[in-house]
Design a protein around this nucleic acid. Structure first.
Length: 439
RNA sequence: GGGCUCGUGGUGUAGUCGGCCUAACACGCCACCCUGUCAAGGUGGAGACCGCCGGUUCGAAUCCGGUCGGGCCCGCCA
């Protein structure tokens, strides 16, 4: 039986037990598995650091009668070395105290090697399903990727900003926005922080934002959701949009490196590895079409954009010819890009824009922006846009904006490719799609 | 918005060109056995009327229509 002294002992995490061999400790966590033998019984307790094995005498199992796994418990006992235990130590002479009992049966098993529910069943039960070790690992790595994102940009004097998600005018002028009732006036959920981050470049030169973006498109694919977390970067005084692409590649490498270093065990669980960067090729849009014609015998010369199949081919080409999982496609037709994209002065039909394709899927979109006020007004007029709706945005340009450019990374897509998930919903905590508004 | 496909106990599946299905298997759950498990093992047990509605038929999980829900492709994008 545990002593009074042991009951007041500091909580020790499962992963630190080996450092407390011989000591009386308290661990707290969720019951991950119960294995009863009658004369000797095992309890696996899971906390944020990992798993711990507890050995219980028959009389000490009683508090758990009628309780299911995921019950939250405190366990008091002595840490002992035990080669038969998978972590080398276990807690013996243990006493269990139930903190939060669980009496219902789980919708699926969290303690099996194979996690079996279909995506729909998993998502419907995400609050508990996310506890499954590889799911935990995936989202801990996501946190690390964002940490790496901030860390890299912070070291280069970027300022983190937070701009409104409720806006009065649609960012890109399109119709695919969610409309709100804003005290009787129409308002919209921002499709991106694009206009605000450009405005803030006029203040800080270099900014970034991590925040939600909303799209009201009814897309039914594995790689689209109606809300996603966008990693936006914008930088001023650039000589060329190639600088922006240089930074992007370094940034991505740093993000993945950070995740792999901070949680190598999670990376292993989730199957995350450093992708191949190599010399990331930069292929002009028209050259990409030419490559597809030569290599895949499909004539795309009349297309103004790339199809998903085109992107898969381009990814394949980069992997084989450049040993890179990444490839930039640049100089997209100006007419297919947003109004703020700078047309190439030497070829105004094409723009100084780029998409980064990661393993055959679009991951990042960026460009050099129009920074001259008169040019912006002219483009808006050509596109039939009303400058009055963009008064705040235009003010930043009216009063002096340096040459600048930036990009937006689809963060869940990055994670999706890094862990080899087949559906973006697997790398989004609580995905929002046409049919799913909860949990 | 267009197309394809699937819907069986808590979970994952088998059965689906009609009748041996009063629905099978694995995991989970319950009971008992087992002093060392770690996807424990053994024995026994509970649990679905086959998404829902209607139709065809002597007879439907199995065929037809509708409906709801899931998944995938295309469009669109991150």
């Amino acid at each position: 039986m545990a002593t009074v002294a042991a009951r007041t002992a500091q909580r020790v995490l499962a992963s630190d037990l080996a450092q407390h061999t011989g000591e009386q400790v308290r661990i707290e966590g969720w019951i991950h598995a119960i294995r009863k033998f009658g004369a000797v019984n095992f309890l696996v307790v899971r906390d944020r650091s990992g798993m711990a094995q507890v050995v219980l005498e028959p009389e000490d199992v009683a508090p758990l009668d009628g309780l299911q796994v995921e019950t939250v418990v405190a366990v008091y006992g002595t840490v002992e070395e035990e080669p038969r235990a998978s972590h080398g130590v276990e807690i013996r002479h243990a006493r269990v105290e139930v903190i939060s009992p669980v009496t219902d049966v789980l919708p699926f098993e969290l303690n099996k090697k194979k996690f079996k529910p279909t995506l729909d069943v998993f998502l419907n039960n995400a609050p508990v399903g996310l506890r499954y070790p590889t799911r935990q690992a995936t989202f801990r790595l996501y946190s690390d990727l964002l940490f790496g994102f901030r860390d890299y940009l912070d070291h280069r004097n970027f300022v983190e900003i937070h701009t409104p998600t409720m806006v009065g005018a649609a960012t890109e002028g399109g119709a695919n926005v969610f409309q709100l009732d804003y005290f009787g006036r129409p308002a919209y959920l921002a499709q991106s922080p694009q206009l605000y981050k450009q405005i803030m470049v006029g203040v800080f030169e270099r900014v970034f934002e991590i925040g939600p973006a909303f799209r009201a498109e009814e897309h039914y694919t594995v790689r689209h959701l109606n809300e996603y977390n966008s990693l936006d970067v914008e930088m001023a005084f650039i000589e060329s949009f190639h600088e922006v692409m240089d930074l992007l590649i370094e940034l991505l490498e740093h993000m993945v490196q950070t995740a792999l270093e901070r949680h190598p065990h999670d990376a292993e669980l989730a199957g995350m590895q450093m992708p191949r960067f190599g010399e990331v090729p930069r292929l002009k849009f028209r050259d990409a079409q030419r490559m597809i014609l030569e290599r895949y015998a499909e004539d795309r010369s009349n297309d103004l954009d790339l199809s998903p199949q085109d992107e898969r081919w381009i990814g394949e080409w980069a992997a084989e010819e450049f040993k890179s999982d990444f490839v930039f496609v640049t100089h997209y037709p100006t007419s297919k890009r947003a109004f703020y994209t700078l047309p190439d002065p030497e070829d105004p039909e094409h723009s100084l824009s780029f998409d980064l394709i990661f393993q055959g899927q679009e991951l990042v979109s960026g460009s050099q922006r129009v920074h001259r006020y008169d040019q912006l007004l002219q483009i808006m007029e050509q596109r039939g846009m009303n400058p009055e709706s963009f008064a705040g945005y235009l003010q930043a340009f009216k009063f002096g904006m340096p040459p600048e450019g930036g990009f937006a990374i689809g963060s869940e897509r990055l994670l999706m490719r890094l862990v080899g998930a087949e559906n973006l919903r697997e790398t989004t905590l609580f995905p929002r799609d046409v049919n799913r508004l909860g949990p």
